[in-house]
Structure formats: structure tokens, C-alpha cells
């Protein structure tokens, strides 16, 4: 991709980002109830103090000016103070973010690990029982309500078989120094293999809940992309040269077949971030998703607003990166 094309594609995301910030701003502004009253609910503030707070928060300004203030603050990472924690929203979010990223990445890695071999196998053995089973499984995967799937896994693997913990991220008594916030990394840094294993066991069910339906979807992408590549001239040529079947599949075909998979995986990672709210709630996973759900019930609006904005911006960014990766990897496409 040429530099100018990259800049052009980047500029295309600007109106979208602007639109997103307008919608998020309106979400909070149109909320019934006075934020000042919510913030002062349990204090004995005088009307003068309430008025002072209103001015401090900029709530006396006209709507368009408030939007500009909101936008300026958002760009600098200032999303106000979490009503509940009495700390800056951004601080609270950053604290919870590693748990969510850890879960999302684990789910995506699992999805790819399942989807790539299955998709390749289905493409090679086209129109066999394997292929049909995979397409049935894909349909199942998209029809499965995530929150229920998680509960079924808990019922089977935790309650009945006792193999995995019911929820949470660590055993109650586990304490490991927080370095990166990623538990799998921190436990290894501390040299605590037992803690690492415990963290992995806690991660397993939520990652499967989030990852398997994604695997169903990705497997379908791998299958169709691989099936297309397998009929291409260079694969036929490689086979004609007498290169072994396995080598042709792995070295020649798979490398190219994975290009669209990278794109879809990047976009799906954005969707997984959204799915996290459900899974984190089901498993009591202390990440951002659960924080948002809790904040909704605590009417902690600044946090909800910041999180929604953060999720949307991440989603748009991942879509952009997916596009860039697609063009960068694929010599046939020059945007």
C-alpha cells in the first residue's frame, strides 16, 4: 500500500470516529436525571455547592460547547471522575483492561488453533462428512447464546466434573506482584508455576465460551479461502512438480489462504471485546466488561461513557488494521 493510500484510508476513519463521539456524547446528555444530583446523592451539599459542582463540570454551558469540551477531554484521556470509585475514570479502566485483553487474546488464539486445522481439513476433504459436519458446527456456533453456553460449561466441567473453577480469575488466596496486569505473565515473572497453572485453569472456561463460537465462524472462512487457493494454478503447478502434498498444503497453499483469515480475525477480535461483557458477567471475570455492567447498575455514567467510546474506537482501529494487513499481505490487492 502506498503512503498516500494509507493516509487516505486513515482519513476515512475520521468522520466515523467523530460520529461515534457525537453518539456517545448524546448518550450521556440525554440520560434522564441530573448527574449532579446522582453525584451528590448521599452527601449533604447545599444548593450553592451543587451549583458550584455544576459549573466545575461545565454542565451550565450550551450543548455544542459541552461537546467540544468533552471531545477535548476525551482526546487527552480525561473522562472525568468515576462516581463510584472517586478516582479518574481512565485510571479505573486501565486497571481492569489487562484482564479483558488477556481473556480476549486467549479466546482468539484458541479460536485460531481450532479453526485453521479444521478449515484446512474441510477444504481438502470437500463434500465429505467432515466438511458437512463443519458447516453444521458453524451454524451451531452462530446460533449459540454465549451466556448460556458459558453456564452449560460451568454446569458440566465445574459443577458436575469439578475440573475447573466456577468463576473468578485467581484462587482467593493467591497473591502475585502486579507488574503487567496480565496474570499469565506476572505469575511467570514471579517464578510461580503453581500460580500460573491456577490462572490458566481459571482462564480455560471463559476462553472456551468466547473462543469456540468464534472458531466456528473462522473455520468457515479458512475453508472457503483454502478451497479457492487449492484450485489456483500455482498450487497445481507445485503439485505437478512433485512436491509432497503436505508441503504444498502448508508452504504454498496455507500461507496465501490465511490472508483473509487475518482480516476476519482482526475484526472478530473487536466483536469479542463486546462479547466479553456477557462472558465476564457469567464467570465473574474481573475485567472491563464486568466493570461496565456493574457501573450501569451503579449509575456510574462517566465510566460507561468512556468504556463505550473506548470499545468503539478500538473496534474501528482493528477494522482499519485489518484492511491495512489485508493489502500489505496480499500482493494482488493494491488499494
Amino acid at each position: 500500500m502506498t503512503a498516500s493510500r494509507l493516509v487516505e484510508r486513515l482519513l476515512q476513519t475520521l468522520p466515523v470516529l467523530f460520529g461515534i463521539s457525537v453518539i456517545v456524547f448524546l448518550m450521556i446528555t440525554l440520560t434522564p436525571g441530573d448527574p449532579v444530583e446522582i453525584m451528590l446523592a448521599d452527601s449533604r451539599a447545599t444548593p450553592e455547592q451543587a451549583e458550584q459542582l455544576r459549573r466545575d463540570l461545565g454542565l451550565h454551558l450550551p450543548l455544542h460547547e459541552r461537546f467540544l469540551v468533552f471531545l477535548g477531554n476525551a482526546v487527552t484521556g480525561d473522562f472525568g471522575v468515576s462516581f463510584f470509585h472517586r478516582r479518574p475514570v481512565i485510571e479505573v479502566i486501565l486497571e481492569r483492561l489487562p484482564a479483558t485483553i488477556e481473556l480476549t487474546l486467549a479466546a482468539m488464539l484458541l479460536a485460531l488453533a481450532v479453526a485453521i486445522p479444521l478449515g484446512v481439513a474441510a477444504a481438502v476433504k470437500r463434500d465429505t462428512w467432515l466438511d458437512r459436519a463443519l458447516s453444521a458446527a458453524s451454524l451451531f456456533g452462530v446460533s449459540l447464546p454465549g451466556f448460556w453456553f458459558g453456564i452449560l460449561l460451568i454446569l458440566l466441567f465445574s459443577v458436575t466434573l469439578g475440573l475447573f473453577p466456577v468463576g473468578g480469575r485467581t484462587p482467593f488466596d493467591l497473591e502475585v506482584a502486579r507488574v503487567s496486569g496480565f496474570l499469565l505473565v506476572d505469575t511467570l515473572l514471579a517464578g510461580r508455576l503453581d500460580a500460573f497453572a491456577a490462572a490458566l485453569r481459571h482462564l480455560a472456561l471463559p476462553a472456551v465460551t468466547l473462543g469456540l463460537p468464534t472458531a466456528a465462524l473462522l473455520a468457515r472462512v479458512v475453508r472457503s479461502s483454502m478451497a479457492e487457493v487449492l484450485t489456483s494454478d500455482y498450487v497445481l503447478f507445485a503439485e505437478a512438480k512433485g512436491i509432497s502434498r503436505a508441503r504444498v498444503l502448508l508452504r504454498h497453499a496455507l500461507k496465501n489462504a490465511l490472508i483473509p483469515v487475518v482480516t476476519v480475525a482482526a475484526i472478530e477480535t473487536g466483536s469479542l471485546l463486546g462479547g466479553n461483557m456477557i462472558v465476564e458477567t457469567v464467570f465473574g471475570w474481573p475485567g472491563l466488561g464486568r466493570l461496565v455492567v456493574e457501573s450501569i447498575f451503579a449509575r456510574n455514567y462517566p465510566l460507561v461513557q468512556a468504556a463505550v467510546l473506548l470499545y468503539a474506537v478500538t473496534y474501528v482501529t482493528l477494522n482499519f488494521l485489518a484492511d491495512v494487513a489485508y493489502t500489505a499481505l496480499n500482493p494482488k490487492v493494491r488499494l
Binding site: 468522520p15 466515523v16 470516529l17 460520529g19 461515534i20 457525537v22 453518539i23 456517545v24 448518550m27 450521556i28 440525554l30 440520560t31 434522564p32 473487536g270 466483536s271 471485546l273 463486546g274 462479547g275 461483557m277 456477557i278 461496565v292 455492567v293 450501569i296 455514567y301 460507561v304 461513557q305 468504556a307 463505550v308 470499545y311 468503539a312 473496534y315 474501528v316 477494522n319
Partner: peptide, 24 residues
Amino acid sequence: SRLVDTLLGFPYLIFAIGLMAMMG
């Protein structure tokens, strides 16, 4: 089209959860 692009910029569940939180 810009409105469509913007709405597509939100993961669906986040959009719905955010709005439901505000509207009740």
C-alpha cells in the same frame, strides 16, 4: 452513508448496552 458507517463502528452489544444503560 456516514451515519451507517458510524453505527457500524460500534460493536452491536456495546451500543445496545450503552444506550440501554442510559435509557433504562
